[in-house]
């Protein structure tokens, strides 16, 4: 799967505001970061479909509760749920670390282009999932957003083998390494 980055998305991560256009030099830096990232990334994704039940302020998946009214609302017509995880691997982090001692501008650029790449990986993976799991797929909803506490990552990891199959681990503050990693719930509405 060849990943691509979105220049404007990367620029937004870099702090470009009000639709400001990146300069030619900046575009070149992004291209350079992209070329270097392509050499070191190892994109992988996994998923698992679950039935779920609703509570007053959240959902229960395989006996585990995820509390968030927004998530509940997000899944209002869904008939099942996919737990989804994707990572571009440890190589991107090593590259950003390398830049952090040699080139501060590239540190920031590689970080932001890397973030755009993992988004692209998620988009492409989710397209593939649409062929595998029939039905309407709701947008991704990630732990740590929409009132779903970041600590829910621990339960999420119990339901999806992020560590064993992709080498993604959680720190004591529920941060994921490799850092260019996404976890998400995807609601499925079946006919």
């Amino acid at each position: 799967m060849l990943l691509e980055y979105d220049l404007h998305e990367a620029a937004r991560y870099m702090g470009y505001k009000h639709g400001a256009e990146p300069s030619e030099e900046m575009c070149e830096l992004c291209e350079k970061a992209y070329r270097e990232l392509l050499k070191v990334i190892t994109p992988k994704y996994i998923y698992k479909e679950y039935e779920f039940t609703r509570t007053e302020d959240g959902i229960i998946v395989d006996g585990t509760e995820f509390k968030s009214k927004k998530l509940l609302n997000h899944l209002r017509n869904s008939t099942s749920i996919i737990l989804f995880g994707a990572t571009v691997g440890v190589g991107a982090d090593t590259l950003v670390r390398k830049y952090s001692v040699t080139d501060a501008a590239m540190t920031s650029v590689a970080h932001c282009v890397g973030a755009s790449l993992v988004e692209n990986l998620c988009d492409k993976a989710c397209e593939e999932l649409k062929d595998i799991i029939k039905g309407e797929h709701r947008p991704r909803f990630s732990p740590g957003y929409g009132g779903l506490d970041i600590s829910s990552q621990e339960d999420f990891f119990k339901l999806l083998p992020m560590t064993k199959q992709m080498g993604v681990t959680l720190s004591k503050n529920y941060l994921m390494t490799p850092t260019k990693t996404v976890t998400a719930f995807i609601g499925i509405i079946k006919e």
Partner: peptide
């Protein structure tokens, strides 16, 4: 003033 963005600032600093 939002005319230069972070990577530009860093490039100059470096």
């Amino acid at each position: 003033e939002n005319t230069v963005f972070l990577p530009g600032l860093l490039m100059s600093a470096e």
